[in-house]
Design a protein around this nucleic acid. Structure first.
Lengths: 331, 331
DNA sequence: CTGAAAGCGCTAACAT
DNA sequence: ATGTTAGCGCTTTCAG
């Protein structure tokens, strides 16, 4: 293995100079630079980055914890993160946690053991979280919820839900059901608050019998739709807390012979690509995924640099996208 | 920052002993072990893994290069990789290359600079590849194609395509179109060979006018379907080289008033989850994604361990799944 | 089984 | 601008 010493010898320079050629080439004379580069090339020298990172005490790596790697929304956030990380010379290490606390702790341990400088968590903070926040671990929570006890980048989920419900109400719907995520999920909680608020402001009574709990997956949406078809007094519109469940529900209703949106208006949340694949296309809320990623990374990098003036919360604008899956109530 | 020396002092032991407590606890006396553990706990000592890896000259990390992180097929392969990596104490570093050679080279550099011990590439090898294979970089290509010049784990794509076409032929189809991936893509090439072989064996002439080139994305499938609807002598069945394009095509045909499968039988490749979401559900080929991942990781780890007896090629069985999108030809 | 000590490859003072 | 040198935190002989 060729080391920096071999290069120094070959170039007739000191290791210190070679080191500078690597990290700050412009502080070295043209002549030395050329000689060093020639030697590096000749010996095919690749600096041992493990030694570099170890010695310089910075890993220049951030870890991104993702609950589900095969989720396009997350992929977009990650893309935003990578953009700013790369610009600052950081690598990003993707951690697929599969919603397992154990796996999360492994990644947190990476920053505790200096393998990474900080962490971006894409799972919203819940009350009983043990993984983060953790003392001495620099972190930001992206696509998060209200009341996150560390730096948080998010949209106003409650307000977005309220916008959706207001829209359905404006179409004449007064009986609006919900397919929620797991009840204890922070996103479910925030979005449910917006739902209730909108009903209240329109003087519509809240009816728990038309709230069905799902788990954010396609199949739970499909199952929920079947529950709705069996109701004696079903809703005329459905607020699904994400797109996957909305699409599952649409599929379920269509299987039972319902027409969407004529027999049931349906809305989603997230604006995944499949919203436009499915017939009918889905009315939904778009989170600014990429810019959330960028904001999160910017905040984290500032935190890593010891900047204490970073805000606790960044609230980004969402977008409400009306497509084919919603229509005025059938009188 | 508390170091191994602090722990040694606290425990009244030497750094060497503490080191052993960390790496090989059973080579240390019970008494020392207990004292060391108490000190570690008391000082909340977290070993600096950068130092550990640097000193021990092994990063215990493998990088997995993925062309597209938001692809469920890849997510499954990754899951298999992680299973065996974890068991052997390796971390996996996910590299989203977005099909960019530049980004690939960055990840390859990570093993050249000892940040990782080896690499698993999920993009099939193409003739003009510059990133891999690379001398001194231990690598395996997973979900790969024929003629990969380094260790490769794959299904027999040509044979799978042949199975699909034989099935369509058995349903009475003789005019079978194709929506291919990019023509130069290795998977396209392998699958096209199988297609041609099946036709030949059934004495059906190859007709290039019913081969439409796509790019493995939904929209290219949709666009291709529109081309088919404009043909004077369209096929009665379509072999799509992946599921996304197949679903795009189905959507396109349905938009134009076609019934699937009555007016057009359609097959996919990959068995992504959406195959079961869409109506009609899609007849397709399933690659054993997870076990491919496991096999790839096992092979890589053996290679890293200096085992020279590793096969060049592992060919795993595929599965042909018949669903609703195909039917016998309408006489 | 344990301690002493060398040194991994590099960076960062510091001196020249 | 360059060379010299100490030492990052750990592992790993090697003696004892």
């Amino acid at each position: 293995m060729t080391t920096i010493r071999d290069v120094a010898k070959e170039a007739g320079l000191s290791t210190g100079t070679i080191s500078k050629v690597l990290s700050a080439p412009n502080t070295v004379s043209q002549k030395s630079l050329l000689r060093a580069q020639a030697a590096i090339k000749k010996l095919n020298y690749k600096p041992n980055m493990l030694a570099q990172k170890f010695r310089s005490k910075q890993s220049k790596t951030i870890v991104v914890m993702v609950p589900d790697i095969a989720n396009l929304f997350f992929a977009q956030v990650i893309s935003g993160i990578e953009q700013v990380a790369q610009k600052s010379g950081y690598s990003v290490l993707l951690g697929d946690t599969k919603d397992s606390t154990e796996r999360e702790l492994e990644f947190v341990r990476m920053v505790e053991t200096r393998l990474a400088d900080g962490i971006i968590n894409l799972r919203p903070y819940a009350q009983d979280d043990t993984s983060l926040p953790k003392e001495g671990v620099i972190a930001v929570n992206s696509a998060s919820c209200e009341n996150t006890p560390y730096t948080s980048v998010r949209i106003d989920n409650a307000d977005a839900a309220k916008t959706v419900i207001n829209y359905l109400i404006s179409l004449g719907h007064r009986r609006i059901g919900v397919i929620s995520g797991l009840k204890k999920n922070p996103h479910s909680i925030d979005r449910m608050r917006g739902y209730k608020l909108a009903l209240q402001q329109a003087n519509i009574e809240f009816d728990p019998s038309i709230i069905v709990e799902g788990d954010f997956n396609f199949w739970s949406g499909l199952n929920a739709s079947e529950q709705f078809t069996r109701m004696q007094n079903p809703p005329t519109a459905l607020f699904c807390m994400n797109d996957e469940m909305a699409i599952g529900a649409m599929k379920g209703f269509i299987n039972k012979g319902y027409r969407i949106p004529e027999d049931m208006s349906i809305t989603g949340f997230d604006n995944i690509e499949a919203c436009r694949y499915f017939t009918p296309t889905l009315t939904t809320v778009a989170q600014p995924a990429e810019s959330m990623g960028r904001k999160s990374a910017e905040a984290l990098l500032r935190l890593i640099d010891g900047d204490t003036s970073v805000q606790n919360e960044f609230i980004l604008p969402y977008e409400f996208i009306i497509r084919e899956s919603t229509t005025a109530i059938n009188q």
